[in-house]
Design a protein around this nucleic acid. Structure first.
Lengths: 219, 219
DNA sequence: AATTGCGGCGTTGTGCACAACCTTGATGCA
DNA sequence: TGCATCAAGGTTGTGCACAACGCCGCAATT
């Protein structure tokens, strides 16, 4: 089930690598990705790599122009606000559409996230916090069995993930870390109560608050 | 704004053509699409066509296997039910997230759809009804300015569109046409009242009912 | 001095040949 | 007869060479 052919597995690996780099601002908006350079780095030819870039373009993270290059997209504030609107609603749906039964293993995972978050409180790093947030997001979507809902949520997440990271430059990193840890605590409490809807509502509320904080720094 | 380069425009055209064929069951589930044959039909080489097939695979409509072929996917009843669940919720959100102001032009378009639907009542055809339903769906999503919501709704629609068409073989076509026309009437009434949420709720309700009718014929 | 035309350079898009792979059928052997 | 093995044919995946295209700088012209 989890076995893939070499080609597909490499495709997924490259896609995930590039997506992460874009969302962690290793490739900031406006930068140009060279097909040839990336192909050389990953030890393939341009052909398989072009398929990865095509998917990234479909997801709205890059844009290819004939004769110009493949450019990392910038984020339009207005569209981002509407995307956040939808993300908030989808986060709430995770608690209503086919929520998974909350097991001890799930709670243990949540505890693990809280531990990692608390560690970050003492010496907060932007990148580490963003990465933890990304992992925690995947954990959040795994709380529903509705595959379509998971897929759409992730698609929208990666489209907006860069916003927070960009805004953090103008926000207080310690504050952001504290807010994130408090979300982890609220979430853990809901999960201990075996209340999937409450856990989803925690995420929903925090997406709203995050959107509000981020939109303030926007000019 | 609506101008595209030749390459992109052709890509969109091919993608739309193949997607429509799959959803209208010209290519029933399980059939094999030959890259070479399709390339010849559309007058290109395999390279641009492969990009189209890759997108269709990403959308879950086909599945490529090395050395075997590109096969039109079949629909898993369980997953489809969950996808319908999400589609229903998204339809409701169209009325809440950035609904467009309802203009006379929109109402005129709705009247046009109703007229076409009523014409079909006298001599119903499965394919024509499915096509009209597809066009009407796009009209429904155009009632929100939230681009992400439109995109996700369409993505899910095309993933489930074949279900109804398959089920129609076991349902009464005249009944289905009548139900569809009654949806058009309800929808038009809501639009005349300039009530976007009511229009969205009409769609929401009909998606629920459609899901129920379709799931009955499933063994 | 400003502008316009042009040519070089780098980039993405395309076509083709070949590699990798799976299926199928025949064929030889126990 | 049953089965294993292998070869042939067809399909998707890959690599490479070239075409198409846009940008930039230079130079000739007005």
């Amino acid at each position: 089930m989890s076995e893939y052919s070499d080609a597909r597995s490499r495709f997924l690996r490259l896609h995930d690598a590039l997506r992460t780099r874009i969302c962690l601002l290793d490739y900031p908006p406006g930068s140009r990705l060279s097909e040839e350079a990336l192909a050389a780095e990953f030890g393939t030819s341009r052909t398989p790599l072009r398929r990865v870039l095509a998917k990234l373009e479909d997801e709205g993270l890059v844009q290819s122009q004939h004769g110009v290059g493949t450019i990392v997209t910038d984020v339009d504030p207005g569209e981002m606000a509407r995307t956040y609107d939808l993300r908030r609603e989808l986060a709430g749906l995770v608690g209503r559409l086919s929520p998974v039964p909350i097991t001890d293993e799930i709670i243990a995972t949540a505890i693990g996230f809280l531990k990692q978050g608390e560690d970050l409180l003492h010496h907060p790093e932007t990148r580490a916090l963003a990465k933890l947030n990304m992992d925690y997001f995947h954990f959040g979507t795994s709380l529903t069995d509705n595959e379509a809902l998971r897929e759409m949520s992730e698609r929208l997440y990666y489209r907006t993930a860069r916003i927070w990271l960009t805004a953090t430059a103008h926000l207080d990193l310690s504050d952001e870390a504290a807010i994130f840890v408090s979300e982890l605590r609220d979430s853990l409490q809901a999960l201990r109560a075996r209340d999937a809807q409450a856990a989803a509502d925690v995420r929903r509320a925090h997406i709203s608050l995050c959107m509000a904080r981020v939109s303030i720094v926007r000019p």
